[in-house]
Nucleic acid binder design. Structure first.
Lengths: 250, 250
DNA sequence: CATATTTCCCGTACGTCGTACGACAATAGC
DNA sequence: GCTATTGTCGTACGACGTACGGGAAATATG
């Protein structure tokens, strides 16, 4: 392992070289793969088996390459994660701004939600990572353009974008966890059985006198079977409130 | 390594046993340390050298124990992280609800911000981890109690709490990153020199024609030296907006 | 076609991590 | 003392990210 510095921040790679089209030399053995192929394999792996399954060895195996061959295309794993994040950001469909900036923002973050649901590892991969690939920049440019008529300067626009993205990520994580829990409750089969058992133990704990006496409201709130309202409607409602709260009054 | 299941979710340990006072047996060799001491050492280590420095070996060394001795007090590292999170949650000072629920909420999340600034690893450790230790539950109970008169049921209250916590974490991360950048810009000394160089390369990239032409607004917004307004005032303003947006109208 | 040059492939190896296992040590009850 | 019980921790295993460098495959030059 090679850790630089004391915080978790990775060393960082020249962004120009990272995101440039990478002109190929005209001499020597041609590469058997490509950065895009490596990234796509990593994304597919994360989609199928979770972020924890994305190891250099596993990604290499998936494209039929030796482990160390990956380092011809990607300087290190941290960078590969940034490439993955930007790659899935290509799923955005961004129409022209309509003039109604609230509606445009809604559309943008609905797209973000859809992308995150398609790639459940994304919310976990995002925090504390700044990615400036073309797809990420495109989404950001769209948001800032749309927000300009709302009376927000660039600085405030960045803040709003970041907070709304964080909201969407956190909300999707919560959504998916709840759907997973519901799924586990249904089939008592062996798949996800340990997860179900853990959830039961947790509920038992939260209902125990030790908890229920000291924190009655929490105990009740967390153990109610909660007749979940439509996830889509909930998201819409919360997103609207966030947009109004954050960008509402100049 | 022992990974259970396909997602990154850890196996999970019986919460009752985890958070109970752990009555000591009256026979056999007495423990040389305690769960609290292990947790405190881990927190101190994270405070001093970052979350990445928290390894079982390092924590053990800090209290003068063999590495494997830690496993008498803590079932695994994931659980130790949960203990750390709850431990620093003990920093909350929660006065009686005043009747003005907006003011009470503001106070609560100001406390959260202060805690996160004191323990900069906390925002990174929080996401996708559900902790139900006494301090976390106390803060949650406070929030739900305070929110009840605002016309939110338990389910909505949980949502609001989770979203506001996420906001604070994301905001503090951003704050600290900016302060770090400002610090790096000042001293061209060797400490943080690579970080400074990386930031310069990034700025150069964001100003390059390739970026500036395609994403002019972003390029401008991200490379302006931005005369940062008072962090405290910014936080206050955003928190107010979030509170009004999320809990504002029934 | 032969050779030199450039580029890429990837087997091996190192250091680090979390943690399973089990021999050993220290206590309390008999 | 002896035995049962509990805590300590040295050793070891299987993962991980990745440095290193020898060999293979292509092109350029003659």
């Amino acid at each position: 392992m090679t850790r630089t510095g004391t915080s978790g921040r990775a060393a960082g790679v020249d962004p120009e070289a990272l995101w440039a089209p990478a002109a190929r030399p005209r001499r020597g053995r041609p590469p058997a793969h490509s950065r895009a192929a490596v990234t796509a394999a990593a994304v597919a792996l994360a989609d199928a088996e979770g972020l924890g399954a994305v190891t250099m060895r596993a990604v290499a195996a998936r494209i039929g390459a030796g482990t160390m061959s990956l380092y011809s295309y990607v300087p290190n794993k941290e960078t590969l994660l940034e490439l993955m994040i930007d790659e899935v950001g290509g799923g955005h469909r961004l129409p022209e701004p309509s003039g109604d900036w609230r509606a445009d923002l809604r559309r943008l973050f609905h797209e973000q939600r859809a992308i995150m649901r398609r790639h459940p590892w994304l919310p976990a991969a995002l925090p504390a990572r700044q990615t400036f690939g073309p797809n990420t920049l495109a989404a950001l440019e769209y948001a800032l353009t749309v927000l300009a008529p709302a009376g927000l300067d660039a600085r405030a626009g960045l803040e709003v974008f970041s907070l709304l993205s964080g909201f969407v990520a956190s909300h999707v994580t919560h959504e998916l966890a709840q759907e997973q829990a519901a799924h586990n409750a249904d089939n008592a089969g062996d798949a996800g059985n340990t997860a179900h058992a853990f959830h039961e133990a947790q509920t038992r704990y939260l209902r125990s006198p030790a908890v229920a006496d000291a924190y009655p409201t929490v105990s009740h709130a967390l153990t109610e079977p909660d007749a979940a309202p439509s996830p889509d409607a909930t998201f819409d409602r919360l997103l609207d409130r966030m947009i109004n709260g954050l960008a509402g009054a100049g």
